[in-house]
Each structure stands twice: as structure tokens, then as C-alpha cells.
Computed example of a mutant assay.
Amino acid sequence: MILTVTLNTALDLTYGVPELVPHASHRVSDISERPGGKGLNVARVLSALGHETVVTGFAGGSTGTVLRELLAGLSPQDTRSRNTEPGAPEADVPRTGPRTGATGTSPEGQDDRAIPADAAPAPHASSAARSAPAPITDALVTVAGNTRRTIAVVDRTTGDTTQLNEPGPLVSADEWSAFLVRYRELLAGADAVALCGSLPPGIHVGAYAELVRPARAAGVPVLLDTSGEPLRRGIAARPDLIKPNADELAQLTGSRDPLRATRDARRRGAHGVVASLGPDGMLAVTPDGVWRASPPDRVRGNPTGAGDSAVAGLLSGLVEGLAWPDRLRRAVALSAATVLSPTAGDFDRTAYEELLPRVDVEEHRPAA
């Protein structure tokens, strides 16, 4: 099982407009809503790759209810199998928990729920065979505040996206403590954990460092994907891998040179660093070597979720024991295929299969 942590979950709304014009009214041509936040996007892709995934973090209020119903594959109108109030009785819902460790109810009185994923299957990096989508288990912790919304406005003429992100609910000290108990229980059955995204109001800036330490103590590989001061604090706890983009890496290290900045990030505590360089691919500096992976073609579309798909590629490759070049090849192909999909958390399967064998991975060898 792979555990993904999304402390600031979101209901992702995508509005398509024929053309986005500043200071003008627009008629929306198409609308979609999905359960979102970086870790939930990662989980959706992992499921499509055939990996059983548990998602945890916070959800609350009416938006949180809709998020969980969508995550479960239910329509917002059908709530008979779900009651999100702590301790409330529930209708029969299929459940699966981690392979080992604690099962049963969460600190908030909510059972883990096995969720049939609706994402399309995709092949692994070294195989053309497709895996059946694996279940995603909902282990989110209920909070009193309302889960945030993110709004992506996609210009269907240019393919460009304008993103609006709400801040998220205020999380209390008691809610944070309840989450920590649940997180430690879930680590017992995890093969790897991804800590993803921004922190909601009320969570201290060193929260990710607090989550990295028990994962490492349990021997669970941990990937950290955040930015700013939470990344700076988290990296000091020595995560196994971080995945900053170019701007986040420059903010962390003060350098715009990708190789220099990535090496600097390793010196600050990360065992491995994979820098996302946008259309130029990825750069990995690891204990096993340095590689650069580049997509065969530049793609244009909605970049929302592309970094999350890359995280899924890296994590799945780690759990499967793939060599670094194959992990990077998968991550780059998934990222590019996500840009070609209009909705966060999805990737274009046909594009992924076509791109995968064409991703170029070169090992960097220091000059003699």
C-alpha cells in the first residue's frame, strides 16, 4: 500500500471557456469537479497504475462532503452510503485497510473506506501490459472547517489555464493531534508515503518535518512535495526524496542553475532530489547517480496535476524496485500525458503509452 497525505484537500473545479478575456463576462462551455489536492491527484494516478493507495489528510464542511462522495465514485445527490459526521452510523460500504497495522475506526470515528477508482489503467514503465485500477481507501480525518475549492479556468482556444486557489479550513490543535494518531497507524501498513501540497491555516510550518520523522523511524520511504518554508523545514528531517519544481528549488537554494541547486538541496538533508524542469523534463540527483530525463516533444495543454503525476511515477517506480532511469522515464511520460488531459488528476493513457519509450534519459558523469 502507498500512503498519500494531503493536509489541504480541495474540490477541484475546472471551467472551460471558448476564450478567456480579462475584464469580460464569460459563458462556460464545460464544467468538471473532482476531489483534489496534490496527494489525491497522486493517488488517482497510482490507482491507474495498479497500486493500492490510502489517502489521508483533512476534509470538512459541505465541500468536504462533496469531495468524499466524488472520491467514492458517488454522485453528490446520492448520500445514502455516506454519513460524514464523526461517530455516525454508516450504510454498508466495502472496506479495506492497510495490509498490516491498525484497522477499524479513525480517531474521528470514521472507518477507512475502500473506493473503486475510476481512473483509466496505464502500463508500467518497463511493460506494455496494463494493470487493473487498484482501490483507493479514504482515511481522511473530519475537521469542523469547510474544505477549500480550487478553480481552473481553461481557455479552449489557447489551452492556457488560470488557477484560483482558496486557502483551506482552519485546523485546530485537537484536529491535528487526531490526524497524527491516524497517520502513525497508517504507516504500519505502508510501502511508501507521499507528503504533498500546501498547509491549511492552523498547521505549524514545521508540520512536514514532524511527519517525515516517524516515517523514517518506521523504515517507510517518504517523498516530500511542497514549497517555501514547509519545504525548508521538512528537508532538514531528511526525507528520502523531494520533488521541487524549478521555482521552488530556486527559492530553497537561491540558485537558478538546476544542477547546482539540486545538489545544494541534497546537502540540506534530502537523500535524493528530483527537480521538475517543466517542458525540459526532470533532473535527478541521487545517491546512485545523476540523470536527466527529457520528453520527446513539447506538449501544450492544462499543466494542473502534471507534477502530481510525476510524483506517482516516482513512487510507483520506487515500490516496484525500478532502476532510476525507468522511474524517471515513467515520471516524465506521465507528467506530459497529464498536460494533455484537461482535468487535474487524469492523464491521457494513449499519450502516455506513446511517450513512454521515447523519453530520453541520460546519465550525467562528472568531467575527468
Score class of each variant (00 low, 15 high):
Pro200Asp: 02
Ala119Phe: 01
Ala178Gln: 07
Arg149Gly: 06
Ser255Leu: 13
Ala114Lys: 04
Leu277Asp: 04
Ala144Cys: 01
Ala128Leu: 14
Thr158Ile: 11
Val66Lys: 10
Val153Phe: 09
Tyr208His: 11
Ala368Trp: 12
Thr253Trp: 02
Pro89Gly: 03
Pro98Cys: 11
Thr158Trp: 02
Thr56Ser: 12
Leu283Arg: 15
Arg68His: 03
Thr105Cys: 06
Pro18Thr: 13
Ile31Leu: 15
Arg184Leu: 07
Arg260Tyr: 04
Val93Arg: 14
Glu320Tyr: 05
Asp30Cys: 05
Ile2Cys: 11
Asn165Gly: 06
Leu195Pro: 00
Val222Ile: 04
Glu185Cys: 08
Asn302Thr: 12
Leu180Tyr: 01
Glu33His: 15
Pro167Met: 12
Ala336Phe: 09
Thr4Leu: 04
Pro89His: 02
Arg256Glu: 13
Gly109Cys: 01
Leu318Ser: 06
Ala312Tyr: 09
Tyr183Pro: 08
Thr65Tyr: 04
Val274Ala: 12
Leu164Thr: 04
Pro121Thr: 05
Ala270Gly: 04
Thr338Val: 08
Ala102Arg: 15
Gly301Thr: 09
Ala312Trp: 06
Gly109Tyr: 02
Tyr15Arg: 14
Gln110Asp: 13
Asn83His: 10
Gly109Ile: 05
Asp280Gly: 09
Ala246Ser: 09
Thr338Phe: 02
Ser255Met: 06
Leu315His: 04
Thr6Phe: 00
Pro18Phe: 12
Ala134Asp: 13
Pro296Phe: 03
Ile203Lys: 12
Pro214Ile: 13
Arg95Cys: 11
Gly97Thr: 14
Trp176Lys: 00
Val28Arg: 03
Ala261His: 10
Ala284Leu: 14
Leu70Ser: 05
Ala190Ile: 09
Ala132His: 10
Ile151Phe: 15
Ala284Arg: 06
Val274Arg: 10
Thr338Asp: 08
Glu52Thr: 15
Leu241Trp: 11
Val212Cys: 09
Arg365Tyr: 05
Leu13Thr: 01
Asp174Phe: 03
Ser227Asn: 03
Val290Ser: 01
Asp297Asn: 12
Ser294Cys: 04
Pro133Gly: 14
Lys243Met: 12
Phe179Gly: 08
Arg148Ser: 13
Asn8Met: 03
Thr262Val: 01
Val285Ser: 03
Thr350Cys: 04
Gly97Gln: 05
Tyr15Leu: 15
Val222Asp: 10
Ala367Met: 10
Pro169Glu: 03
Pro200Glu: 05
Val42Asn: 00
Pro86Lys: 00
Ala261Trp: 01
Ala215Thr: 10
Glu52Gln: 14
Ser127His: 14
Ala217Gly: 02
Ser126Thr: 15
Ala114Asn: 03
Thr158Lys: 11
Pro342Gly: 07
Val299Asp: 01
Leu322His: 11
Asn8Phe: 09
Pro135Phe: 05
Asp326Val: 07
Pro167Val: 15
Ala10Met: 06
Val17Met: 11
Leu314Ser: 08
Ile115Asp: 10
Pro89Arg: 13
Val273Asn: 02
Glu52Lys: 14
Asp247His: 14
Arg298Thr: 15
Val171Glu: 11
Gly278Ser: 11
Arg256Pro: 02
Thr137Gln: 12
Ser341Tyr: 09
Thr84Asn: 00
Leu74Tyr: 10
Ala265Leu: 04
Gly61Glu: 08
Gly60Ser: 15
Glu175Pro: 00
Leu195Asp: 06
Leu170Met: 12
Ala333Cys: 09
Ala152His: 07
Pro135Gly: 08
Ser47Met: 07
Leu328Phe: 03
Leu252Met: 05
